[in-house]
Design a protein around this nucleic acid. Structure first.
Length: 206
DNA sequence: CGGGCGATACCCT
DNA sequence: GGGTATCGCCCGA
């Protein structure tokens, strides 16, 4: 018998390690495409849409005006998860990169544990809508404020980013970021081309 | 499948 | 006190 781990289900691929995250979020974000967000209970989805946030120059970033109690995790070690509460009812999840920068995960293509995702969302809904949107995917994956600050590296805290060998898309599809009023012109949103699980419109021409 | 609209509580000024 | 890194529901195509 192999030694018992906290992972109740075998994860596909290898856990992405810390140096991957210790870079500018605009470098990390496109390379997160086609990687996998996985939970210890077997729920997992392929990352098909991301957004970079750069505190130092980005008025839309939570970290733009410096450290506060809410955004403290974003000023901590790379490779941790920053989970914030918004619009009075939704949780959104980010990967922390270099200090003050992070990548918002905006959409997943469901891969494993789809029955648990339906249970967490709603049994009648379309599979396409399970994880299409940053707050939908946290609900589907079981991510809340309880996960704010957990380490995505080391497989200790129940969630990880996995690499199963699928590379990021060759031709990146970009577009304006969504749901913000300032900094909309910064082209820091990326998605997998022609993927039906992407949450928003893609820009014409790149 | 895309657009318009109300709901909701926490954060920061 | 104002604004929010959103969603589900409804409508029409």
């Amino acid at each position: 018998m192999p030694k018992r781990s906290r992972r109740s289900v075998a994860w596909p691929g290898t856990v992405v390690s810390r140096p991957f995250f210790e870079r500018p979020s605009t470098d990390v974000a496109p390379q997160l495409l086609n990687k996998i967000l996985a939970g210890a209970d077997g729920r997992a989805g392929r990352i098909v849409e991301v957004e970079a946030y750069v505190g130092s120059m980005d008025p839309a970033a939570h970290t733009y005006r410096g450290q506060t109690p809410r955004n403290a995790v974003m000023f901590g070690p790379a490779g941790h998860m920053y989970v914030y509460f918004t619009y009075g009812m939704h949780w959104c999840s980010n990967c922390v990169c270099q200090v003050g920068e992070g990548v918002l995960i905006r959409a997943l293509e469901p891969l494993h544990g789809v029955d648990l995702m339906y249970e967490a969302r709603s049994w009648g809904m379309k599979e396409r809508d399970l994880c299409r949107g940053p707050a939908r995917l946290t609900q589907a994956m079981g991510i809340t404020g309880a996960q704010n600050g957990i380490d995505l590296v080391g497989a200790r805290d129940g969630f990880a980013i996995l690499d199963d060998g699928m590379p990021p898309p060759k031709a990146l599809v970009g577009g304006p970021r969504i749901g913000i009023r300032v900094g909309v012109d910064l082209p820091w949103r990326w998605s997998v081309p022609d993927n039906r699980y992407v949450s928003g419109p893609v820009a014409r021409g790149a």
